[in-house]
């Protein structure tokens, strides 16, 4: 269960991260393991749903683009890439990272790629939240001049 949660968490980071950052960190790591495709990168869409009133029955809101692929390393580890947008390179690297995270290189890959990506995403979210907080209205009541 913990392994599954870990994988959910790193795949989610890989899906949401900007492609440029992921590819840059991947090149810095310098790993290019041999692999073969189980499913070559494919661009498609998923239907995003909402709920009536935010909490009621589901409805179809509209689609978003997605790229997916699956590959297998020489060692046998299988990696899946499911990433937002239309970027086959991003999907390939996401799948390679997913596969490597199941090997002995996991800690090195986590330190080189996942930890910085997660930190950057948290920082950028924090900055937006801080800017939003600065626009919060402080109401005050005028004191009337009668004792």
């Amino acid at each position: 269960m913990t392994a599954e949660n870990n994988r959910r968490s790193w795949m989610s980071v890989l899906a949401k991260t900007p492609a440029g950052r992921l590819l840059a960190l991947w090149h810095e790591l310098g790993a290019e393991p041999d692999f073969h495709w189980l499913r070559a990168p494919e661009i498609g869409a998923t239907m995003v749903r909402g709920r009536l009133g935010g909490t009621g029955a589901p409805f179809n809101l509209g689609e978003m683009t997605l790229t997916r692929c699956a590959l297998q390393l020489e060692s046998g580890a299988v990696g899946h890439g499911y990433v937002q947008g239309r970027d086959k390179d991003k999907a390939r690297v996401a799948a390679l990272v997913d596969a490597l995270m199941q090997t002995e290189q996991a800690e090195a890959v986590r330190a080189a790629i996942l930890t910085p990506l997660q930190a950057e995403m948290t920082a950028s979210k924090g900055t937006r939240a801080a800017k939003a907080a600065a626009t919060k209205v402080d109401f005050f009541t005028m004191v009337r001049g009668e004792d």
Binding site: A45, T46, R49, G50, R51, E63, T65, K131, A132
Partner: peptide, 23 residues
């Protein structure tokens, strides 16, 4: 363009309560 994309599925309904609100 949308009609040329294969559909991989549908998402879980989004949780708007958990939105990171800008406004």
């Amino acid at each position: 363009y949308r009609t040329t994309l294969p559909r991989f599925g549908a998402t879980a309904p989004v949780d708007t309560e958990a939105m990171a609100c800008d406004r």
